[in-house]
Amino acid sequence: MAKKSGRGTLTAEKGELEIRVEINGRPRCLRVAPGEYLLDALRREGYKGVKKGCDNGDCGTCTVLLDGKPVLSCMMFAAQAHGRKVTTIEGLGTPSQPHPIQQAFVEAGAVQCGFCIPGMVLATKALLDENPDPDEAAVRRALDGNLCRCTGYVKQVEAALLAARKLQGGKQP
């Protein structure tokens, strides 16, 4: 007999689906429209750090981590996150206690208007989780899906490299 799916089937009732998803470490039960994208559902639930940019998978401002991997939340249905773990920028740090990556972005002066930064920070986190000591080329490659219209990317690349050093306990290159 075929193994039954761990995530089962979700059927809409009165035009809504009930999905169970862990957001920033907290189990949540969300009611979403079947055709609703993860981006829209997260923003409606108050996670405004997930930015709506192109809404077409081109700009990367809507990046969130799904089971630790960076994804474009505008390109997947909210229901596809059922049974999975989502991390938004709100799950990384607080204004009083920023995550070392956020601190690095501030120290490197990598933030201008700030709209792309949540996506940049999360893409950086995914990179550093996989490769704690990346070179500049690896950083540029990992961030090539996150567009910034204010800067020339130089500061953000420096910020990611600084974050890597911070997370390794201040090791100098």
């Binding site: 799916s5 089962g8 979700l10």
Partner: peptide, 21 residues
Amino acid sequence: MVKNNIQQFCFPASVPEALRL
């Protein structure tokens, strides 16, 4: 939100289950 008529999401765990659906 893009207009569509989706009512259900299925998450099969095996290829036969996916093919049956």
